[in-house]
Simulated scan of single mutants.
Amino acid sequence: MKQGEQHPIAAGVTALVAVAVGVGLIVGIGMFVGVNLMGLGGGGAAGDQATDPDAGASLYAPPPKPTKTATGPAITLNASPTSTPEKQGASVSTSPSASKTVAARPVKKEITLQAGTVAAKPMERIDLSGIYPGGEGAILRLERNDGQGWEDFGIPDIPVRGEQFSTVIQSGRVGKHEFRVRDVDTGTYSNPVTVTIG
């Protein structure tokens, strides 16, 4: 090897390092330009917010102002019987809106039952379904009346999910049958539906 010539391994390592640095610079510059073009860089937005702190605000709330009360509140919520305005010496408003209280009405739980068919052959599939507003989680029992009084039909109890319920039955007993469901906890009955089998 002549003096001044580099060893081949050292020359190869130097070339690899030079290529790696060049590729790294190109990738870094490309990412910097791409981030700024896509608006992901926070430089401009941070500068704007530094000069105008409300530039990014999307909700405006007016400053609070004290309310004027003459003789007390017009509506009293959750008032106890021991602290009525008469006992406190306050004047009582006689306007209908202030003197009348509206009690929240409970949801009337009515079970609505419907049959998928009104006539079926013996052992043919009969779909029964319905809705039970306010009856989420209730357990219903199917009953049948074939002219001799209501009796349990003998299938597993039906759960109410999403205020709805459904089941499938089969019967080989020929004749006119009425079906209804009963809430096993409250005793509430649905409307009866009639299916003729035969």
Score class of each variant (00 low, 15 high):
residue 182 R to L: 10
residue 164 Q to R: 12
residue 125 R to C: 01
residue 138 A to H: 09
residue 171 S to V: 06
residue 96 P to E: 12
residue 177 H to L: 00
residue 102 V to E: 14
residue 158 I to A: 03
residue 95 S to L: 13
residue 99 S to R: 14
residue 178 E to I: 00
residue 113 L to K: 13
residue 182 R to T: 15
residue 159 P to R: 00
residue 123 M to G: 01
residue 164 Q to V: 09
residue 167 T to A: 11
residue 183 D to S: 11
residue 146 D to C: 01
residue 178 E to V: 00
residue 136 E to K: 05
residue 143 E to R: 07
residue 133 P to V: 00
residue 118 V to Y: 06
residue 150 W to F: 07
residue 163 E to I: 10
residue 187 G to L: 09
residue 138 A to K: 09
residue 117 T to E: 06
residue 119 A to L: 04
residue 138 A to N: 11
residue 96 P to C: 12
residue 97 S to P: 05
residue 150 W to C: 04
residue 151 E to L: 06
residue 110 E to F: 09
residue 105 R to G: 09
residue 152 D to P: 07
residue 140 L to M: 10
residue 133 P to L: 05
residue 179 F to H: 01
residue 131 I to Q: 08
residue 148 Q to A: 03
residue 165 F to T: 00
residue 145 N to K: 01
residue 160 V to F: 06
residue 134 G to T: 07
residue 151 E to W: 02
residue 130 G to E: 09
residue 154 G to P: 10
residue 99 S to A: 13
residue 124 E to C: 08
residue 188 T to F: 12
residue 116 G to F: 11
residue 180 R to L: 02
residue 139 I to G: 05
residue 153 F to Q: 06
residue 133 P to W: 02
residue 112 T to P: 03
residue 136 E to M: 08
residue 148 Q to H: 02
residue 109 K to A: 10
residue 169 I to E: 05
residue 114 Q to I: 13
residue 136 E to G: 02
residue 172 G to L: 08
residue 182 R to V: 15
residue 137 G to P: 05
residue 182 R to Y: 09
residue 140 L to T: 08
residue 184 V to F: 09
residue 99 S to V: 15
residue 105 R to W: 10
residue 95 S to K: 12
residue 121 K to D: 02
residue 146 D to K: 04
residue 169 I to Y: 10
residue 187 G to Q: 14
residue 109 K to W: 13
residue 143 E to A: 05
residue 133 P to S: 04
residue 107 V to N: 14
residue 171 S to C: 05
residue 176 K to C: 01
residue 156 P to F: 14
residue 140 L to G: 10
residue 135 G to F: 07
residue 158 I to H: 00
residue 138 A to S: 13
residue 137 G to L: 03
residue 123 M to R: 10
residue 146 D to S: 05
residue 165 F to N: 00
residue 179 F to C: 04
residue 143 E to W: 12
residue 175 G to L: 01
residue 129 S to R: 05
residue 143 E to F: 11
residue 186 T to I: 07
residue 145 N to R: 01
residue 112 T to H: 12
residue 183 D to T: 11
residue 166 S to F: 04
residue 185 D to F: 14
residue 186 T to Y: 15
residue 147 G to Q: 03
residue 117 T to Y: 06
residue 133 P to K: 01
residue 177 H to Q: 00
residue 186 T to E: 15
residue 187 G to S: 11
residue 177 H to D: 00
residue 100 K to E: 14
residue 120 A to T: 03
residue 106 P to G: 14
residue 143 E to G: 04
residue 102 V to W: 15
